[in-house]
Amino acid sequence: MILTKDLTKIYSNGVVALDHISLTINKGDFAFLVGPSGAGKSTFLNLIIRRELPTSGLLAVNQRNLATLKQSEIPFHRRSIGVVFQDFKLLPRKTVYENVSFALEVIETPPKEIKDRVYSVLELVGLLNKAHVFPSELSGGEQQRVSLARAIVNRPLLLLADEPTGNLDPDTSWEIMDLLKEINKRGTTVVMATHNREIVDHLRKRVIALEHGKLVRDAPKGGYTLEN
């Protein structure tokens, strides 16, 4: 699913965001990406969705080498990936339904199919009754569920979540985690960058720890910090 070898990203200001990272994330995995701010977690996710280009090394997603991906191929690469952000990134002037259907409309899904898929995914995230309200009328947790619905509505192979619980209270965070586990159970690979120690320690999933751009730990069922 994701294969990196000596993956390095150095920004034009000289900051080394990722330093020779080599790892493999397999199809169906659930991996936490942990580390302090500035460790390179967001850069790693940005490289996967091809918002940025690696400076050197190999990065392949779904057997596509992202360094050699043509500009015209980027949209098609992104269609196999769902992304969830800490700040939800919902469109304030679109309803819940429109925010989700938007992801299908831009990839030119037939209208009939759009309706069925949007309602089915809204049911999964428990927001069927709020399909026609605007994001400003929703709580933070509900907004994040809309964001999740938008990320998975086109049935991506890979779901990237960048601090999805960062703006949420503990109870709501667990609701989002339950949804992510459910999505993962249905076969989608999930990579989640987080600072939430409680969630990582409790779920005991794979933990990839970064520090100053270096891979410092890759534990199959790890905790937030190294345990002896």
């Binding site: 969705i49 015209s72 949209p75 098609f76 690469h77 992104r78 269609r79 992304v83 990134k89 469109l91 938007f102 992801a103 831009v106 990839i107 030119e108 938008r150 086109n154």
Partner: peptide
């Protein structure tokens, strides 16, 4: 601009945007 950013993230081609 955020709308454009999201369109791009969910896989819209430039022509579509």
């Amino acid at each position: 601009r955020q709308e454009i950013e999201i369109m791009k993230l969910v896989g819209a081609t430039n022509a579509f945007v």
